[in-house]
Amino acid sequence: MKRICLAVLSLVILASCSSKKHVVVNTVPVDNSVYAATNKVYTHQTDSLLKIIGNENPPMLIDSTGGTVPAEWVGTVNFGMRKPNYVIIHYTAQDSVQQTLRTFTLTRTAVSAHYVVAKDGKIFHMVNDYLRANQAGVGKWGSITDMNSCSVGIEIDNNGSEPYTGPQIKSLVALLVYLKKSYNIPTANFIGHQDWAPKRKPDPGPYFPWKTVAQYGIGYWSDYIVVPAPEHYDYVTALRLIGYDTSNLKDAVIAFKRHFVQSDVTPAVTPLMLNILYNVAGKY
């Protein structure tokens, strides 16, 4: 009976979270029948997760002498659902939002995102914010090596070689501000896919308006008046302190410049880059 109550309680929590975390920006009706099958799979998978949550069996452990380690389940009253602490911003690198939605609803692709932002500003919520989406992939940010487990992934409908639309950015800012407030996400923890995986990814690219979103407390941006970096400035350590993986320094430099310089995305370490890095690093 207790397990049934726990499962019911979990369903209520997930349902309330799903409805609460669904951001409606555009009220244009959607033909949900197109994704009826994938919505059913989503529900089935969340049901499977609820069974895992309801497991009250302690682990069966064997010590170094081959003996059984005594263990007993004692449920605590002090626990809750894990909340995201980072937001990763991507571009889709596809031709349309319909193509992206299809990509994220095919099992064989094994990729997904929590949100997809269309060119007209409409937001598609695809994974509950408390669940893990397959969006960040392999990378490193500071000491974090599993970003999928602690982040919300946002994909923006953009092929990578075009400016983002006004309605798109307006809706994205609303979503980012909402996520920051809902989960108390620090300003520094809004990063691009290229920040997380500089060896593999270029998105959201030099067209993404980091300066604009920073005005809303989404990520940092350099001050208007930049103090010159000191002579022999240790830019490698500065990049590392921000969070960049410097194991391939050229890629780390390019990723930083895509985010914070944008007018120059070459691997060259220029005075402008050093000055901006000196200014930005001081905010972290």
Rank of each mutant, 00 (worst) to 15 (best):
L14A: 10
V23A: 12
V111I: 10
G137V: 00
C150L: 11
D31S: 08
S10R: 10
T43C: 06
E231A: 11
T107L: 08
N55V: 02
S151L: 00
I254S: 05
L131D: 13
A174L: 15
V261M: 12
H232S: 13
Y235R: 09
I144D: 15
I52P: 01
S182C: 03
G243S: 12
Y91H: 06
A118Q: 02
G137Y: 00
H114Q: 15
P230Y: 11
V97L: 08
R258A: 00
I53D: 06
L249G: 04
W73H: 10
R82S: 14
H114K: 04
V253I: 11
G137Q: 00
Y183I: 01
Y207E: 04
K283F: 03
G67S: 14
T109A: 07
L172S: 03
Y224E: 09
Y130R: 13
I225D: 05
A268N: 12
D264E: 13
A118K: 01
M1L: 10
S149E: 11
W196N: 02
D31W: 04
Y216H: 13
L239C: 07
K2V: 06
S247Y: 05
N128C: 14
A197K: 02
N39G: 10
F190W: 02
N184K: 14
S149N: 07
H114E: 12
A214S: 15
H90V: 02
I169R: 01
S19A: 14
K250M: 09
V261R: 08
I242E: 10
E56G: 08
I218V: 05
D47G: 12
G243M: 09
P228N: 11
F260N: 07
K122N: 06
T237G: 12
P186L: 00
I53F: 15
Q168R: 03
V34N: 07
G219Q: 02
